[in-house]
Simulated scan of single mutants.
Amino acid sequence: MNILLVVPRLNIGGAETYVAITALSLHRLGYTVFVASGGGMLAGSLREQGIRHFYVPIRLSTALAARMLARIIRRNNIDIVHANSASAGYVAVQARQYVKVPVVYTAHGIFGHNTQEMTLDQCEKIICVSEYVRQYALEKGFTSQKLVTLYSGIDLTKFKAYPQKKELVRQMLGIPADAFTLAIVARIKNLRNKGHEDILQILKDFEDAHNWHLMVIGKGKGLWSLKYRVWRDKLSQRVHCLGHTIEVQEFLDGADAVVLPSKFETFGLVLAEAMAMGKPVVTYAVGGTPEVIAHGHTGFLVEKHNLDELHCRLRNLAEDSQLRLMMGDQGRGWVESNFDNNFSISKLTDIYQEVLGASR
């Protein structure tokens, strides 16, 4: 089976990480895998591991991208296209004007907001990363038989805790060994979407948080606004901006907990990754996050924008190292039972076979 994975970009993000993990997993199983995207750090990493990457400007021009995709499909005898994100899905559907190929679409976000996105119902199968996304798609009128919920899988060999690295990471960043340290991993489009603003507010306003540290992993258009806010609020000694990295796990070893107070998440891949590394997680109860976290068992779900409750839950973890360890252990077990990538890939290949069988 020749598989083409399509995604707009290959930098840090849920869809991008999913594509990279899926490509490598399928490659190891012996499938011939290609990836098409607008480029990014993960593209080079995939090439180094034997996966061919094609540059396709998916968000620059739909018409051009569809023609380029069709040519890639013909020249490489692609059996199935697996698109990720609405824009990639739309381009894949448009490419079928030029070449006949079945399309599977993974919805990493909610979709069906306009006429263009409704054309995604032409895909043979729509994989929803959470039940929340599937229910939303049903309400929008997508064909129920095409919709299937399949949680994103975590590479448990990559996301695995190495407690001995904690001291090394902290020494490198200048974080005291005994300081309660949080990590937030997200693209910084602005300070609101992923909750950077809320966690900075807690570090500034709550007295018992004045010794806490925060590792900010990720970059984006809002990075300079974040750095200005850190400078303005005199948080420079406690907020550590690490930028973009494809080796997130290397830094998470230095954290005591992971926080993601997003306005909205369809799944929250980083939450599952953090739990795989034995870290308790705290996030707002929005979208699909209640499906990822077992509240009070692997972390805490908090009412959106309730800073007092968010602070209270973080303080619970800051003051109780045994609670952190217990939730971390339970989180690892939860991910092993629910989000193991081996299971997800097995289900994904079953979907591919079903789609190919129906198209013959």
Rank of each mutant, 00 (worst) to 15 (best):
V169F: 06
R170S: 06
Q171G: 15
M172W: 06
L173Y: 00
L173I: 05
I175C: 11
I175L: 09
P176R: 13
P176H: 13
A177D: 13
A177G: 05
D178A: 09
D178M: 14
D178E: 15
A179W: 11
A179Q: 10
F180S: 10
F180E: 09
F180R: 13
T181I: 02
T181S: 06
L182D: 04
A183H: 04
I184N: 04
I184V: 13
I184H: 02
I184C: 08
V185H: 00
V185W: 01
V185F: 08
V185Q: 03
V185G: 12
A186W: 01
R187T: 12
R187S: 09
R187N: 10
R187M: 07
R187G: 07
I188P: 02
I188K: 00
I188W: 01
I188G: 01
K189N: 09
N190I: 03
N190G: 04
N190W: 00
L191H: 07
L191A: 10
L191K: 05
L191D: 11
L191S: 08
R192N: 11
R192H: 11
R192C: 04
R192T: 08
R192W: 15
N193P: 00
N193Y: 02
N193D: 03
K194R: 14
K194L: 11
K194Y: 09
G195S: 01
G195Q: 02
H196D: 04
H196W: 06
H196L: 10
E197Y: 07
E197R: 08
E197Q: 11
E197M: 08
E197V: 04
D198E: 14
D198G: 03
I199N: 05
L200V: 14
Q201E: 15
Q201N: 14
Q201I: 04
L203D: 10
L203K: 08
L203G: 02
L203M: 13
D205M: 02
D205F: 05
F206I: 10
F206L: 06
E207G: 00
E207Y: 11
E207D: 12
E207H: 10
E207S: 08
D208S: 11
D208T: 11
D208Q: 05
D208Y: 00
A209H: 06
A209Y: 05
A209K: 05
H210L: 00
H210Y: 00
N211H: 06
N211D: 14
W212Q: 13
W212F: 15
W212L: 12
W212G: 09
H213L: 09
H213S: 11
H213C: 10
H213N: 10
L214A: 05
L214Q: 05
M215F: 13
M215R: 07
M215T: 12
V216A: 04
I217E: 01
I217P: 06
I217S: 05
I217Q: 02
G218P: 07
G218E: 08
K219V: 10
G220A: 12
K221F: 03
K221S: 15
K221G: 15
G222F: 09
G222Y: 06
L223H: 03
L223R: 00
L223Y: 02
W224C: 05
W224N: 14
W224S: 13
W224F: 10
W224A: 13
W224Y: 10
S225N: 14
S225C: 05
S225M: 09
S225W: 06
S225V: 03
L226Q: 01
K227H: 02
R229V: 06
R229Y: 09
